[in-house]
Simulated scan of single mutants.
Amino acid sequence: MSRPVEKKAPTQKSIWYTLKKATTKNSEWPDKDEFLDVIYWTRQIMGIVAGILWGLLPLKGLFGLGLFIMLNATVLYAYFTNFQKIDEEEFGGAWELTKEGFVTSLAGFLASTSLRSAAHISRLAPPPPQRALARFVNRTDLQVLSAPHFDKSGRNVPLSSRQP
């Protein structure tokens, strides 16, 4: 006779459960690491999405970087103080939550901005003119690319003694 199989509780919560909690207002977060993971991954997604948008717009330089930093910090601060209404002191204060995953978010932002800008620029840039390339290759000081020169007696003339 077979015994009924007992179902064990999952040791790790599913991504969908965590996502539902993250998008539900005033959720309870008994596991502090779970909430810190939500903050971390939200910041990573924000960094990549903002990087693509900054590359499309194009927002550049210190203004673009400063705008990203302010937007990133403000959105996350508003998320955990107004939307989730958590006690900041349980997580080490507002500063700890604000800086959670910031450096990797900045790296994702810079990488996606660079890649998006490079793809955007290469698509818009005109192809190089063929005549300018041909003139560059045929210049006399770059005759390394040309066939060897022989004098009247059939000997190879070195580059240094060739006449243009």
Rank of each mutant, 00 (worst) to 15 (best):
2 S>D: 15
3 R>K: 12
4 P>Q: 06
4 P>T: 08
6 E>Y: 09
8 K>L: 06
8 K>A: 01
12 Q>Y: 01
14 S>Q: 09
17 Y>T: 05
18 T>W: 03
19 L>S: 15
19 L>E: 10
21 K>T: 09
22 A>N: 05
22 A>E: 05
23 T>Y: 10
26 N>R: 03
27 S>L: 00
31 D>M: 07
33 D>F: 13
34 E>F: 02
35 F>A: 04
35 F>K: 03
35 F>H: 04
36 L>G: 08
37 D>V: 10
37 D>S: 11
45 I>D: 05
46 M>K: 09
47 G>R: 01
48 I>G: 13
49 V>K: 06
51 G>N: 02
52 I>R: 01
54 W>P: 02
56 L>E: 07
58 P>A: 08
59 L>K: 05
60 K>S: 10
62 L>W: 14
62 L>E: 08
62 L>I: 02
63 F>M: 10
63 F>H: 12
65 L>A: 12
66 G>D: 08
67 L>V: 08
68 F>R: 01
69 I>T: 06
69 I>M: 13
70 M>P: 01
74 T>N: 06
78 A>K: 00
81 T>W: 03
84 Q>L: 03
85 K>C: 09
87 D>V: 00
87 D>M: 03
89 E>Y: 03
89 E>K: 13
89 E>H: 11
89 E>V: 02
90 E>R: 09
93 G>M: 03
98 T>K: 06
102 F>L: 11
103 V>W: 11
104 T>L: 09
107 A>P: 00
107 A>E: 13
110 L>I: 07
113 T>F: 13
114 S>I: 02
114 S>Y: 12
114 S>D: 11
115 L>N: 12
116 R>N: 08
122 S>K: 00
122 S>D: 10
122 S>V: 02
123 R>H: 14
124 L>R: 13
125 A>T: 15
126 P>A: 07
128 P>M: 03
133 L>H: 05
134 A>N: 08
135 R>H: 14
137 V>W: 07
137 V>K: 09
139 R>D: 15
139 R>T: 15
140 T>E: 14
140 T>R: 04
142 L>N: 14
143 Q>A: 11
144 V>T: 10
147 A>G: 01
148 P>T: 14
148 P>D: 15
148 P>S: 07
150 F>C: 13
152 K>N: 15
153 S>Q: 13
153 S>W: 03
154 G>M: 12
156 N>F: 09
158 P>D: 14
161 S>T: 15
162 R>W: 05
162 R>M: 11
164 P>G: 12
